[in-house]
Amino acid sequence: MSTMTPRVDPTNRAQAQAWDGTEGGYWATHADRFDLALARYQPAFHAAAGIGAADRVLDVGCGTGLTTRAAARAAPAGEALGVDLSSRMIEVARERAAADGVGNARFAQADVQVHPFADGEFDAVISRTGAMFFGRPDVAFANLDRALRPGGRLTLLTWQAAASNEWIVAFARDLAGTGPPPSPPHRPGPFSLSDPDHVRALLEGAGFTDVALDGVAEPEVYGRDADDALAFVLGLLGWMLSDLGPAERDRRTAALRATLAAHEGPDGVTLDSAAWLVTARRM
């Protein structure tokens, strides 16, 4: 794949600006923190992917590459290609694969909604919380279906509805003063694939079969203690306070710190989360 700036579909331009801008930069800088937050989901996600020793794997929205490296290690006679809209995260992913000696992990900046993969290029497509941001998910999943060989496997981890995720309920309440955000199925965002009926219809319409969703729930780790977690969350979501006066900003920051302190435990600050483990096959 080319190292040139990738083609981005017009419906994904806002996502590209965010992920190849400050948001992606924050994720790249705090790669270990984000990987730790999702660490308890990784064993079930990796097992569901069922990667074989000679498989060719595509990792969609690979971020800084932990899931790509895991796939590559599981396929020593194959390879794993991680793609993401964030050039900074791709850079970190390459550095980490080289440092770990995972030579069959490759990375490229790409919009999988429009990237011209070869027909049947992959045995497996995986995406851990990276497939919810397509402007046209029907087009993106059809492209991924085409990129899989017949019988090839798709494995996704996507969030369940916001109301089922304690972390976003708490952050929205304390920082924005609102309830959890809605889960619109036709707008890109963390909860766009939270409705099982919508996911089944979307994947079956793209050509997949044997679509299954299994509910999984794990705590997410946000920091060593309340102050550590507060700095991390504010770095990610502090924009929610940007239009407020100093007194209200301080009040909401204090409310968030109190919430985080109430969730301190032996594993650090943890908040509950719930996701779907989605599996499907290309016909």
Rank of each mutant, 00 (worst) to 15 (best):
V233Q: 06
G245R: 06
V139T: 14
S273V: 01
L230S: 13
W167N: 04
A217T: 11
A74D: 05
F133L: 00
C62Y: 09
A124L: 02
M132S: 04
G130L: 02
G25F: 14
H186L: 14
A170G: 00
G50R: 06
P116Y: 08
R73V: 15
R7F: 14
V278N: 03
T209N: 08
P43M: 11
P190R: 12
L213R: 03
F171A: 05
L236Q: 11
A47F: 02
F45W: 03
A254R: 06
A97R: 12
A280W: 06
W167C: 07
T68A: 08
L237V: 05
C62T: 09
W167F: 05
D243S: 15
H263C: 05
G189V: 13
A16T: 02
V92P: 03
S192K: 09
F133V: 02
T158G: 06
D214N: 09
P188A: 09
D195E: 12
R136Q: 13
F171C: 04
A247L: 14
P137F: 08
L156V: 09
D119P: 11
N104L: 03
R200W: 06
P219I: 06
R128P: 07
M89K: 14
A71H: 02
G215D: 01
G238R: 12
D272K: 07
I168K: 00
A124S: 10
A71R: 08
Y41N: 10
G179A: 10
F191E: 09
A262R: 05
T64F: 06
G205I: 10
R257M: 05
D123I: 06
A31T: 07
D267R: 08
L175S: 01
D111A: 07
L203N: 10
D138V: 01
A163H: 03
T68N: 03
T178L: 06
R13E: 15
F122L: 02
A172G: 00
